[in-house]
Design a protein around this nucleic acid. Sequence first.
RNA 1: GGCAUCGUGGCCGAGUGGCUAGGCUCAGCUCUGCAAAAGCUGCUACAGCGGUUCGAAUCCGCUCGAUGCCUCCA
Length: 491
Amino acid sequence: MKQQDLFIYNSLSKSKEKFVPITEGAIGMYVCGPTVYSNVHLGNCRTFLSFDLIFRYLKHLGYKVRYVRNITDAGHLENDGESGDDPILKKARLEQLEPMEVVQKYTVDFHTVMAKFNALPPSIEPTATGHIYEQIDIVEKIIEAGFAYEKNGSVYFDVLKFNETNNYGKLSGRQIDDMIANTRELAAQSDKKNPQDFALWKKAEPQHIMRWPSPWSDGFPGWHLECTAMSTKYLGNQFDIHGGGMDLKFPHHECEIAQAEACNHVTPVNYWMHANMLTLNGKKMSKSTGNFILPDDMFTGENNILSKPFSPTVTKFFMYQAHYRSILDFSSDALEASEKGFNRLMDAYRMLSDLNASEKSSVDIEGWRKACYDAMNDDFNSPILIAHLFETVKYANAITEGKETISEKDLALLKQTMHDFLFDVLGLEESVLENSQDGEKLNAAVALLIKLRNKARADKDFAMSDKIRDELASKGIQLKDGKDGTTFSLN
RNA sequence: GGCAUCGUGGCCGAGUGGCUAGGCUCAGCUCUGCAAAAGCUGCUACAGCGGUUCGAAUCCGCUCGAUGCCUCCA
């Protein structure tokens, strides 16, 4: 695949920019991963699937991509002011588990879910607890640089001081003066000089069991620090792409920029990318409000939200029919529409194998292919890509009916391009049954029933033929009579 | 309150200053023993009000509405 002009929307400049990697042909990409103190919900998955698409497309373009996505298994403060509890510790008390047992349980869950979605694993998946030394090291450097202060065993980043020489707020568009003006005086007991300051290191209370020694206290790292430590460790002080959910833009990513600039004296990231939220009932999916659905509950259909189960690949297809920067609302109707479209698209893909080539093409496959790439090169516009892929349905039908012709070369190109986008870039999967042994047995059994039914139809025994058809339908097997015989699909 | 985003046809959802996105639904037709499936055809929208322009859903202003962030969250 020859290198093409790729445009990426950069949250920093709020505009699409031509993508130029720091090192030609290679890309460093960091994405904020999950906090593993509960099951990932579907909203979390959307972000990771958005970046899976981006990862896959960059690789498809021929880049060597190092994709780093962390596991947050410690240290995110729940309340910056007084309690100092982090969610992992809280959950551990609740379930009478070791913190690392909680972490392990939900890390496994996360990996299992992402595998069901056929998401590629990142190149490196570092954990926060595995990088405590690196985080302490950064705190020391920031203190040396004069942008942090220690108070009662905790260390805080001095935002106002930093803002004198740097620009705190450039990513989220916030003005430091506005932030000061709008701060309410709630945390009276805070060790912070200013409410805008954020913790780099937090002294652990006696009952706090996740703790590590440091020059300042036995404690734990502040919740923005791990990403700075791990991204720069594996990708360098400056790297190409940093991604995450829109909700992390402020304060998390803003603080990451500040930490990295204070520590390394260069701005860390060239392209900031933010994936938008998946909403349910018009509201952001969120653990804390209970407004969410678990992936497994939608695969099995065990939920009160959807009319039926939906497979991981259909769910993913549904997500990719919206652009990653748009809010996407989740509903049964929308999922069903996507499922039907997905099936039609996959049917068309299979039809390509049966197409007969002609001397010449009456369809413009080269042009179509370019349109597909243009869509993805325009900030990974998967909905447009999918719209183009649907044109294949029309091509396949028209060629089958002899209304259009296609040359051997174009047919090969069409098949290859469809395969590339469907499976390599979008990472979709054909239904599990199609390739499995059980699927073959089912095929054989239904084929027999189809044969019997056709015999009955030939004998004009419609009572029998309809009985076969209707009983299969009631079991979720739908027969489809076509010109070239009968096929079936599972509902 | 501050910062930001968004409001598109029955539903979902792209989009650019001027040329039908696409999917689903629906209607008609073809096919069919009937039905389903499949195919073909049709369905021209852009919150409201002003403004800029030869021309705006697309740019600007205001109004209304929604969402996200400002506290853990993808």
